[in-house]
Structure formats: C-alpha cells, structure tokens
C-alpha cells in the first residue's frame, strides 16, 4: 500500500488516469450506469485528436523554456481544407490527400523553424506570426469551401474493432512509438538534452539546430495529419476546426506530467490527460450544465491540477 502510494506520488501523470476514471464514474453514477461503455468509446475517439497534436506539442515543449507551437490551430485548419480539396470526395485520392495534409503541415513546421532561426526570435512569437499568416491563407482559401470527405475516409475514421475505435488503436501504437523515440533514440535523447541545458547539449556535440528543426517539422506534420483526420471524423473541413487544439494540446502535455521548463517528457500521461479532459466534458454534458459552466469548470480544473502538481523546483 505504501509502495503503491509512493509510486503514485513519484509519477504525477498517474493522476490524470485517476482523474479520468473519477469523472467517468461520476458520470455513470449520474446516468445510473446507462451508456457507460458508449461514453468511454466516444471519449477514446475524441481523445485521439488531442493526443496526436499533444505528441507534437510535447516534443516542442520538451526543447526548453519558450518553446511552444502556437501555430497548431491554424495549421489544423489549413491542412483540413487542403486534405479535403485534394481528396475531392473521391475514395481513390485518400492517400494523396493525407500526403498533402502532411506536406502542408511539414511546410508550416519548416516555416516556423526558419522564422525562429533566421530572425533569432522566441519560438512563441515565431509560431504566433506564422499562425496569423496561415490563418489568413486558410480564410481566403477555404472561403465557401464545403467539401465533404470521401465516404470511405469518413467511415475509416469511425471504424471500430471489437468495439474500440480503430483510430484510437492506431494512435495508441503511434504513442508507444513516440515514447520509444523519445527515450531510446538519439533524436529523442537529444531533444531531452537540449531541454535540460541547451549549452551543454551543444558542447556535447548534439546538432542542436537539426534537432530543433526536426521537432518543429514533426509538430507541423502531426498538426497536418490531425487536420485531415478531424475533417474526416466531423465530415467536413472548416476554418475553426482546430481552434480548441491550442489550449488542449498544451493542457494535455502539462497535465500529462511533461515539464513546461523542458527536458522532461511523459508520453503515457498524454492519453490520461486527454481522456480526463474529454470525459470531464462528457460528465458535465450528462449533468446538463450550460456552456458557461462547462468552460468555468474546465478552467478551474486546469488551474487546480497545475497548482496541486506545483511547478519546477527553482534551479540556480
């Protein structure tokens, strides 16, 4: 019992799973057990989209203070429009459309990094300025665009295997791969090293520029992929489709136990945090509260979680 408690306190990301379980139980107590399974399935389906961008955001945040990708919402919006236009409602073009979305995201990631590097400005401002421009391109390009996803692709995003959404399974596999990449590959270890001390990392011979470039490119591509998947799942692209994912991506990274100061990442926590946020909304919905209360509670929970977890010990 003591060991279990110590383990729980040593791995704060477990709280996110615990929290997810608690809000789920609260919701099913309210419905007297009705729809318990359905709620979990729906939560898994929705959590996927947050986890995908969360992984990209996690790698970026792990690079160290000031590193954050604010261009994700604009990226998701534009990529979803690009993917749907390229697919043009035709099942045979799905692969090309996905590639186009990835390419669009990759291009945005590259632009982000070029701004950071060429103008030597903080990533927050670089990705912010980029997102202003991407947003305008999207508004201008996506105006009046009402393209539905190809039926095959829309179905694909909703397939369930043994009751579990296929996308969730694929994302889980991808999460494991990301975890291995973070802890067991030169690239991942380099990201962690840069986040802990960029100067030491550079002196140790890590190609800092290349690693940062790869990380922003990765975040961009995941944003692009997420855009395409969202458009498939919600049956259509629109400019605002990515809006909630700026806050959500940062929130799952932090609630999931990744350090905002960089150098310490937690992949497993992403799923717990994403499920927690989605189930929290589900619970509030089953309680039948208004949109205002839903926002209010979500906000309080984020502030409470981060206050309880506490910040980094000051490093001198």
């Amino acid at each position: 019992m003591m060991a279990a408690r110590r383990w729980l306190f040593a791995s704060p990301w477990m709280w996110s799973y615990l929290g997810a379980a608690l809000v789920w139980i609260a919701a099913i107590i309210f419905t007297r057990g009705y729809g318990a399974g359905g709620m979990l399935i729906a939560a898994l389906s929705l959590a996927v989209f947050t986890v995908v961008v969360g992984i990209g955001q996690m790698f970026v945040i792990t690079l160290g203070p000031g590193n954050v990708d604010l261009s994700l919402p604009a990226n998701i919006g534009l990529s979803s429009a690009v993917a749907m236009t390229v697919m043009a409602g035709d099942d045979r073009l799905v692969a090309i459309g996905l590639a186009a979305a990835l390419g669009c995201g990759l291009a945005i990631g590259i632009v982000n990094y070029l701004l950071i590097r060429a103008l030597s400005i903080p990533p927050i401002i670089a990705t912010l300025s980029a997102s202003f421009i991407i947003q305008s391109i999207d508004i201008s390009y996506g105006r009046g665009l009402q393209i539905k996803p190809p039926p095959g692709f829309a179905d694909f995003t909703n397939i369930q295997i043994l009751g579990i959404p296929l996308l969730a399974i694929l994302t889980a596999v991808f999460t494991v791969a990301a975890g291995i990449a973070l802890q067991r590959t030169v690239y991942g270890r380099s990201v962690l090293a840069i986040g802990q001390n960029i100067r030491a990392a550079r002196l140790a011979g890590i190609r800092v520029g290349w690693v940062r470039f790869a990380t922003y490119a990765l975040s961009g591509m995941l944003g692009g992929l997420d855009g395409a998947l969202l458009a498939g799942y919600f049956r259509g692209a629109n400019v605002d489709i990515g809006n909630e994912y700026l806050l959500a991506s940062v929130a799952v990274v932090v609630i999931g136990g990744t350090s905002v100061a960089g150098g310490k990442a937690n992949v497993a926590g992403l799923w717990g945090a994403a499920l927690f946020l989605v189930l929290l909304l589900t619970m509030l919905n089953t309680f039948g509260v208004s949109a205002g209360v839903r926002l209010l509670v979500t906000g309080f929970v984020i502030v409470a979680v981060i206050s309880a977890a506490g910040g980094e010990k000051k490093r001198d």
């Binding site: 929130a251 905002v260 309080f300």
Partner: peptide, 9 residues
C-alpha cells in the same frame, strides 16, 4: 498554463 486555465474561466 495558469492563464490558459483562466482563459476558460
């Protein structure tokens, strides 16, 4: 993160 939460509030 704190102000992110406050944004919702």
């Amino acid at each position: 993160v704190v102000t992110l939460g406050m944004n919702f509030v």
